[in-house]
Design a binder for these strands. Structure first.
Lengths: 148, 148
DNA sequence: CCGATCGGTTGCGGATTGAAACCATTATGC
DNA sequence: GCATAATGGTTTCAATCCGCAACCGATCGG
């Protein structure tokens, strides 16, 4: 059984590599993050992320071209806006795991940081990948198989 | 309750931004991916990822400096090797979600790609973040709270 | 002892990024 | 309805980053 990163599965066949090719830069996932929080306009994305304008133009086009964002004219006759598609929204678990890793490891002990909570204010448990039978998955118990 | 990307929580306070600052480039997560699959030597990382040597040097140092990798001399008197720390291994859910997104959205319908399976060969279910009470979490039902 | 391998470093050209200025098209205040 | 400002970019230019290839000292294997 080929391991999770068997040479046969390296770039550009590896799904991880393909995903990172789309969103594996400094800004794309921050744009997605802000889109998930309701940012829609060019200016709003720019304000929240602090990204340079020309780069933002490029990223919005790229994400739109690949179907993560959709560009449409706003209902209120306003300028156009960028909204997440289902494809883009599916990156939610990625953003979430990045956030949980950051909360856990990217802050000095005692340093103030955010914690994820659900709509009732209850803390969100850390994501722990499990197999179909409920057992916890680790780097050594996960492999890949060719399919489709 | 501040939303997941409330302006007050943008860079560099946002855990997502901090995490991406460490691994949000084209190569770092691929190095981590290969480390999770047992790659240890400089040459092995280079061969698997195809990264340029000077860049690999830089990434290995950076990841080591931030505690995701540990550099140590190999047991067999051989040259030194790079192994994942617990901190680095905690990125497993990130790699996993990236992979699942890629499998789902980065391949043309019908195009051959890999699927994740556990040690018994059973397919790994897609990660779906749930709240403590078991309800499914989405972009609109997740928020952040200040803490610690 | 000779050649191959390992783990880099160096130099260079090309691509990418960031900051700022500029610009046409809308809203908005008065 | 006119001036002003904001919106959504584009352009320019400098600085940085990246990829490639060559080089290099130390080690390993025969």
């Amino acid at each position: 059984m080929p391991s999770i990163t068997d040479p046969d599965w390296t770039d550009p066949e590896c799904p991880v590599a393909r995903t990172l090719d789309l969103v594996g830069d400094k800004w794309s996932l921050l744009v997605i993050r802000d889109a998930m929080d309701g940012a829609r306009s060019f200016t709003e994305f720019q304000r929240r992320t602090g990204i340079a304008r020309n780069i933002l133009t490029d990223r919005l086009r790229k994400l739109t071209a690949h179907g993560l964002l959709a560009q449409r004219t706003a209902p209120s006759g306003r300028r156009q806006e960028y909204v997440l598609t289902d494809v883009g929204r599916d990156l939610f678990p990625v953003i979430l795991t990045l956030r949980q890793w950051g909360e856990r490891h990217a802050f000095a002990p005692g340093e103030t940081h955010s914690t994820l909570v659900d709509q009732h204010g209850a803390p969100v448990p850390e994501i722990a990948p499990t197999s179909a039978d409920g057992t916890l998955l680790g780097t050594d118990t996960t492999h890949v198989r060719k399919s489709r």
